[in-house]
Nucleic acid binder design. Structure first.
Length: 575
RNA sequence: CGGGGCGUAGCGUAGUGGCUAGCGCGCCUGCUUUGGGAGCAGGAGACCGGGAGUUCGAAUCUCCCCGCCCCGACCA
């Protein structure tokens, strides 16, 4: 029995000044967590019970799926991370430390190496596969910017799984098993989520999907087609365009265009000069970038910005990507800021990539590579060539769905899970092979799957709260029933106590507000803030033989007779 | 790392050169109160983020450092 009279808990009447997002604000106010440093939090009793409930659901679903739980240290030696070059590649996000002998250690940001090495140490035959193992472990990443309370911390708990298979078909099967286990897990956690296709990015795999919990304060942006269900991270959104069907344009011509530094001013000048009515979408923007020290130009329609995230995710192998700065222009005197066009790219020594919208045969108004001059009828395939198409332009709400052409919507979400097919990268680097039927060594293929366990607590809070407090799903709540003794009469406290014992005897977890010195108003406010789903009030109606039953999420109140209270409460909860 | 904001008691805050740093919540003692964050009386609790400087005098002005929050870049 949890008693409010002795609980290590102090709810706050005011919102903490340093919390903005709802989950952070409410978890602090309701006494679930306290900040220790940026992105590092302590859990108080109510919070830790909630956290452990989430962990329990995750663990049960992993076990149900037949995955085996293991546990690695958080404190790890440098060596395994050298084999995959991540000691270097991970950069400043890695927490590094030295032992007394001066040897390098790290706090694990993720554990691919350790899992791979564990399997390598034990198994060596195809007969041992497939295998899926997981752990629930604290991870450390020295984030450049921790934010939103426990949504993005520098210390956080992640459930990470890895699958090991002999071939691609096996990997696909393991991937699907994880996908199904994740769907069950998030459903049990009461989370609304979308499964979106994602870029596997730096991890170097192939197929990858993210589980996103929609929420306005989320930090991931994704597109969703409400008709066919297509969903993708903005980085992974595919642009669908038709081939050019217009007429072949006349030869390109250069015209004077002084004082047109912006697309708008250019459009205005062209329209009045030629007596036509084009829009920004008919102009071609040449955005210059430095990619690992190489100058590249990205072509996008003038009415769109370049999305650096998308470019980065879609340009294979590029580490450092940034916009051109004045000193870069100085190195390429042929590039006239504001008047760049793709016609002379080869001469100027830059590599040109184009957004898929710049289809072959289409013609554009673009810079003439001379101050105060633009050109029109500049035609792709005739007047300029590109090295490759790359998804580069920003995604806008209303863009056509790549599968059914319906305008998509853009929404924000918290990433709560990520599954992907890693392939053989780690197994190769660490030498994980097994012998096949023919006695030949085969490199194992792996999948990697993560759930942010501590983050899920915050994600649930984000999706399930109102102005006055938290509203937990039953399975996650720190207790299932909150019994409030509201009054001063001894009989009220006695009955509340008895009722609590009876409910517990029926298998329910109960938080009893048995504080003698708190007024009913305080107890009601606290109960609403704490957010246990069912609230039972033992108070003034006790003398009429009644207690009150409330459902936090509905704000509903009904009275039950005291002698049938336990049965009625249980019936109401299980209804 | 770029831009913005902030740091005064456990929490929320007032105080912009003047002597004793104020208020509300919370906490302690006593009395009264008990269905929507009770009342009265008394009390504890602050190296005003740290350091250096300017000044007769600094929470207040200057410089440096530290910490925290938000936007961006980057990332689960």
């Amino acid at each position: 029995m949890l008693r409010m009279s002795t609980l290590l808990l102090r709810t706050l009447r005011d919102d903490p000044a340093d919390a903005e997002v709802a989950s952070h604000r409410l978890l602090v106010r309701a006494g679930y967590v306290r900040r220790v440093a940026a992105g590092i939090y302590s859990w108080l009793p109510l919070g830790y019970r909630t956290y452990r409930n989430v962990e329990k659901v995750v663990r049960e679903e992993m076990d149900n799926a037949g995955f085996q739980e293991v546990h690695f240290p958080a404190l790890l030696p440098r060596d395994p991370y050298e084999s995959t070059n991540r000691w270097t590649e991970y950069g400043p996000d890695l927490f590094r430390l030295k032992d007394r002998k001066g040897n390098d250690y790290l706090l694990g940001p993720t554990h691919e190496e350790m899992f791979t090495l564990m399997v390598k140490g034990e198994f060596s035959s195809y007969k041992d596969l497939p295998l899926s193992i997981y752990q629930i472990q604290t991870k450390y990443r020295d984030e450049p910017r921790p934010r939103s309370g426990i949504i993005r911390g520098r210390e956080f708990v992640m459930k990470d799984s890895y699958s090991f298979d002999i071939d691609d078909a096996g990997l696909e099967a393991s991937y699907q098993r994880h996908r199904e286990a994740y769907i069950k897990t998030f459903n049990r956690l009461g989370l609304k989520f979308n499964i979106v296709s994602a870029m596997s990015g730096a991890m170097g795999g192939s197929k990858s999907e993210e589980f996103l919990a929609p929420c306005p304060t989320g930090e991931d942006t994704y597109v969703l087609c409400e008709k066919c269900g297509y969903a993708a991270n903005v980085e992974a959104m595919v642009t669908k365009v038709d081939a050019y069907k217009g007429e072949v344009p006349p030869a390109f011509e250069i015209f004077d265009s002084p004082n047109t530094p912006t697309i708008d001013s250019l459009v205005e000048l062209v329209n009045s000069k030629f007596g036509i009515s084009i829009t920004g979408a008919d102009t071609l923007k040449n955005v210059l970038l430095m990619a690992d020290g190489k100058a590249i130009s990205i072509l996008v329609p003038g009415d769109r910005e370049v999305d650096l995230k998308r470019v980065g995710a879609n340009l294979a192998g590029v580490q450092d990507l940034r916009l051109f700065e004045d000193e870069d222009f100085a190195k390429y005197p042929g590039l006239v800021k504001g008047y760049v066009g793709p016609q002379d790219a080869a001469k100027l020594g830059i590599t040109v990539y184009a957004d898929p919208r710049i289809v072959i045969g289409s013609h554009w108004i673009t810079g003439a590579n001379e101050r105060d001059k633009h050109a029109r009828y500049v035609t792709h395939g005739r007047d300029f060539e590109v090295t490759a198409f790359v998804e580069a332009a920003e995604v806008k709400a209303g863009d056509p769905c790549p599968t059914c052409q319906t305008p998509v919507v853009i929404d924000r979400a918290i990433e709560i899970g990520h599954i992907f097919q890693l392939g053989r990268k780690y197994a190769q680097a660490l030498g994980l092979t097994v012998l096949d039927q023919n006695g030949k060594a085969q490199v194992v293929t792996m999948g990697s799957y993560g759930i942010g366990v501590s983050r899920a607590v915050a994600a649930i809070a984000e999706q399930s709260h109102d102005e006055i407090g938290l509203i937990w799903p039953r399975e996650i709540a720190p207790a299932e029933v909150h019994v409030v003794a509201a009054g001063k009469d001894e009989s009220i406290f006695n009955f509340a106590e008895q009722l609590t014992e009876q409910l517990e005897a029926m298998g329910l977890t109960v938080l009893l507000d048995d504080r003698k010195d708190a007024s009913p108003g305080v107890k009601f406010k606290d109960a609403e803030l704490i957010g246990i789903p069912y609230i039972v009030i033992v108070g003034k109606s006790l003398q009429e033989g009644k207690i009150e039953f409330r459902v936090r999420s509905l704000g509903s109140k009904v009275e039950f007779a005291t002698d049938s209270a336990v049965a009625e409460i249980i019936a109401a909860i299980n209804n």
